[in-house]
Simulated assay, not measured.
Amino acid sequence: MVNANEWLNEKIPMNQRAQATDLRIYKHCYNGHNTYAISCNSCNNRNNTLKLPQYQFYSTLLEGELDLNDFINLQCLYITQQQKLTSLKIDKCNKLTNLQINDTPVSILSKQLVTERDRSKDQVEKLTNIIRNVKGFSLSDIKLATKKMEEENLEYQIINIKNKLTEDGQLWLETLLEAQQEVLQNDNAFARKQLEKIKKRLSNELTAENIQELLGKIVEINELEVQLNNLKIQENQQH
């Protein structure tokens, strides 16, 4: 167990924090070991993601205060698996919309979380603005706004599902989402086979309908991305 702020100073330099958008901290390693395994890459911190704008740390147990106020562009924060934090400072993380703290008794959380009602209200306002000013928006603008809202909805849904899963289930869910992206980017027999294996592994905690709904949303977002790219090509050709 290490002091949270000292750990942060060691892992993420001050001049890189403003660029970070995603920070995830897990007590256990990626492979789910509860105790150190010398042959495991995750236990030896080799599977940590230390690349901007996303950071992901496994085999990490923190205590005391964690001050993230330098992460002014942080959008997603996951702190899981019984960390020993006593204070979490995120007052200046104004872009933070997704926050998950599992089994972590943080006594002082210095930011009001975005509620489902607030999130829905924000999306309605964005749509209303587009409708009122439709002449000022191109098809690309509308597609982009739709894609962003779909991504927000998916992220929110993932958080809600994770809160109901075991630690092992949460890790398998992350793997499932990564596998679906792999299938979309490199559609081959091996990738699809891996996806089916992960779906079967998760079926102990999630229904087939839940799994398919999540994967379907990822497909929809990917299709919107393809449409956006095609529209940009068409617009460039017209100019």
Rank of each mutant, 00 (worst) to 15 (best):
Q75E: 15
K147S: 14
I198H: 08
K89R: 12
L139R: 14
N98I: 09
D70I: 03
E174R: 10
Q54H: 13
P13S: 04
H28S: 09
D118L: 11
I161L: 10
Q170G: 14
E220T: 14
Q237R: 11
I130H: 06
N9T: 10
E151N: 06
E213V: 09
K111D: 02
I221E: 04
L177D: 06
C29N: 06
K197L: 13
N44V: 05
I108Q: 10
I218G: 01
E213H: 11
T80Y: 11
P105N: 12
I221A: 00
T115L: 02
I90K: 02
A189S: 11
N34Y: 09
T128D: 12
A145G: 00
R132Q: 14
I108S: 05
W7V: 02
N44Y: 05
E223L: 13
Q54S: 15
E150V: 00
N186D: 13
H239K: 15
T35C: 03
E213G: 06
I72L: 04
L74W: 01
L127V: 15
K51Y: 06
L113E: 11
I79P: 04
F71W: 05
E152I: 08
E152Q: 13
D67T: 03
V106Y: 03
T49Q: 10
Q237P: 00
N188P: 05
R117C: 03
Q82E: 13
Q19F: 07
K27Q: 14
Q54M: 08
C29L: 01
V134K: 13
N5R: 04
N153D: 11
G216D: 06
N44I: 08
G169W: 03
Q100F: 10
R132V: 04
S87G: 02
K217A: 07
Y55M: 07
V226M: 08
L231K: 08
L8T: 07
Q123M: 15
H33S: 02
A179E: 14
N133V: 01
E6C: 00
S110H: 09
V2E: 14
D91F: 01
Q170S: 13
I233P: 05
G32N: 01
K143A: 09
D122L: 12
T86K: 06
D22S: 09
E63A: 09
L165A: 00
E151M: 08
I142E: 02
K200P: 00
N153K: 14
N9H: 09
I218Y: 01
E220P: 00
Q181T: 10
G32F: 03
I211F: 01
E125K: 15
E116L: 13
T115R: 04
L52P: 05
L231S: 08
I101K: 04
F190N: 07
C93G: 04
L77E: 00
N98Y: 06
R201C: 05
K121S: 11
Q100E: 12
G169V: 04
E220R: 12
T80N: 13
E125M: 10
Y78I: 02
E6T: 12
E225Y: 07
F57W: 01
K95C: 02
V114A: 09
L171K: 15
V106M: 06
Q238P: 00
P53V: 12
R119C: 07
E182L: 14
A37Y: 10
V183T: 11
L99T: 13
P13M: 05
N48G: 07
Y55S: 05
E167I: 12
N3H: 09
Y156E: 10
W7I: 03
L184R: 07
R201M: 08
